[in-house]
Amino acid sequence: MTTASTAPWLLVTASIAATYVWRGAGVYCATRIDPQGRLFAWVTCVSYALLAGLIARMIVLPVGTLSSTPLIDRLLAVGLSFAVYYFGRRRPLRAVLSGVVVFILISALRDAMG
């Protein structure tokens, strides 16, 4: 049961607005920035670092269901994906699936062993 007091339309509208603020601010800045310039290069670096941080967090410190799995399983699986990617021929599909399938197998094994 929910104890929510906010009306759904207000909740969703406010959340959309709170997200679009960043998108809109990005467009506003983007139209005033030189794509060949240093500021653009710096913001691109910030984007990459931010996304890497977000993804690393999802793997190392996940919230929700994933947090019930041992860290070592997650690190092993993602390590395998990177190994397949770099030592194979940089095929994303193959790399991602091998890591995820191994992760599923380890989780199933742990389940089976109780």
Binding site: W22, A25, G26, A30, I33, F40, V43, S47, L54
Partner: peptide, 8 residues
């Protein structure tokens, strides 16, 4: 993250 992503 959408701010730097949109700018870049």
């Amino acid at each position: 993250r959408f701010l730097p992503m949109a700018v870049s």
